[in-house]
Design a protein around this nucleic acid. Structure first.
Length: 222
DNA sequence: AGCTGATCATAT
DNA sequence: ATATGATCAGCT
């Protein structure tokens, strides 16, 4: 295995994914001739990018699902020693101005979450290269899950589109929240201000809460 | 101990 | 600056 091509269909993708179950990240990186980062703090997105390579996803920062021809988004999910997701999961950038992205049906949230291949990965104190891959789960939201996602989306986007972006905190939302998503707190993006006038604010992103992703992958509780 | 706000790397 | 991939780390 050096640089796999795109999987031809969903079954192909799942077969490849299952073949990686139990593998340590260091071994996978070695097979792909990819160097591990010096530390997790300097390699926050490394695990996800490693899996993209391993499964033949299209690299790049296009606003498309990782496997666009299959409409499948790939997400790694860090699992702590207790079997539960350790972190929230970034979904996409939150719209700060009116437009198609502000309506749920045509939002990045709907596009990204319609089909997700969740890849559990050991997290915690172990060194990055010793972490093992888990069993991948292909997920499409149930009607109830869509409903909960949409309720949070609508509440959050309504706040933004009425000029209340500065009032948003990560406390809002049952399964999905909005948090800063930027290089740092000084980054600015154009948004709708309180009086309909444009303002500059820190860019935000949608994140799925750990409790929700635990439900999705059927994380064990001990 | 969990969560929110902040941050790190890479590509376009 | 905007998008992708995420985890860090201080505060409650």
């Amino acid at each position: 295995m050096i640089r796999p091509v795109e999987p031809k269909d969903i079954d192909d993708l799942l077969t490849r994914s299952r073949a990686l179950c139990g593998l340590r990240l260091g071994e996978l990186a070695r097979r792909l001739n990819i160097l591990p980062p010096p530390s997790t703090i300097r390699g926050k997105g490394w695990t996800g990018q490693l899996l993209e390579r391993a499964l033949g996803a299209q690299a790049g920062s296009a606003s498309q699902p990782d496997f666009s021809h299959l409409s499948v988004e790939l997400k790694t999910l860090p699992i702590a020693a207790d079997g539960l997701p350790k972190e929230s999961t970034y979904v996409c950038i939150a719209p700060l101005l009116p437009g198609p992205e502000a309506r749920f049906e045509t939002s990045c949230v709907a596009r990204k979450l319609s089909r997700v291949l969740w890849f559990p990965v050991e997290a915690g104190p172990t060194v990055l290269t010793d972490r093992r891959l888990g069993r991948a789960v292909l997920w499409t939201p149930s009607s109830g899950q869509w409903q909960r996602i949409r309720t949070d989306f609508d509440e959050l986007v309504e706040l933004i589109m009425t000029g209340g972006v500065e009032h948003i905190t990560a406390h809002i939302g049952e399964v999905m929240q909005i948090r800063p998503k930027a290089a740092n707190a000084a980054a600015r993006a154009k948004a709708l201000g309180p009086n309909g006038a444009p303002i500059l604010t820190n860019p935000r992103g949608f994140y799925l809460r750990p409790g929700f992703t635990a439900e999705i992958v059927g994380a064990r509780v001990r």
